[in-house]
Amino acid sequence: MQKRGLFLVLLFLAVVASVLVCTAIGPAGTPFLGLAGDETSSIILFSVRLPRVIAALLVGAGLAAAGVVMQGLFRNSMADPYLLGTSSGGALGAAIAIVFLAGAFHWVLAFAGCIAATFLVYGISRKGGRIPVEQLLLTGIAVSMFLSAILSFLMYTAGKSLHQIFLWLMGGFWSTSWNDVWIGLLIVPASLSLLLFSRELNIFAFGEEDAFHLGVDIEFLKKALLLVSSFITGLAVAIAGSIGFIGLITPHLMRLVIGPDHRVLLPASMMAGGILLLFSDTLARTAGNEIPVGVVTAFFGAPFFILLLKRRYRQ
């Protein structure tokens, strides 16, 4: 337990260090190394870089937390925050805003799309007051496909807005402002509230029936976790689009390092997810022209994930 506590403290220090380092790095230069201490540089640091850095940290933390919950709920380390149609719902919402409202309110519609998709999946899966997990999973896949079909149709007929939709789909922080950060701060209490369910999530690793026998109110647990995690995912998608791999890899990686106990896994994954996305975004904005951060996370995330899988099979 003490070792785990130390690990969390170290991770926290790493978060602070990452914020400092990543705020300092940028195409316009680094403080003391070419970036003058004038007003322009202070705007670059505090109005351009810092909000972006903090937003990336928050979104990364949120996606990782939602990923932990989804993997715990589905007892499957292949689950990710977008499993229940959230990303397709969010994408469709954003695309509607871009096509029909010239991009206005696109983050509101993205958030609404995420939540709506989750509730749709939830509503369809409900059977006599219960939501069987397998049903939820399959419905999630079906609803995702259905929403993607509508999205594809929109994109096909979008004409000039196609490029904009496409950029949104890949995800990124290029337009991030302090306003996004204020919204994103909601991710922190929401993710931390998941800690209240960490013992129950641990027990859930043995399946619904075992969890029920051990006294867990499984239907309440599923509802609460789905609600909170879709709220978090909705915020993350609204701020930065659907960025892949952070929610999938981070919980996986942290489980390898500190074990599956959600009391530690959840905060550790939040911090690690924040750091991972922060560095991905820093790479995305410094590597030549701005590249979508979703490309970076997938480009590095996928091979890394394969490596993890290989290692696990060898054991």
């Binding site: 399946g207 029920f212 026998h213 109110d217 489980r255 074990g259 106990d261």
Partner: peptide, 24 residues
């Protein structure tokens, strides 16, 4: 019974168990 009350009265050992993660 609430689920918690029931779990204090009754324990169940199922036919098969499939641990999802590497708990000790």
């Amino acid at each position: 019974f609430s689920s918690l009350e029931l779990s204090r009265e009754m324990a169940v050992v199922p036919q098969a168990t499939d641990p999802g993660f590497d708990f000790t």
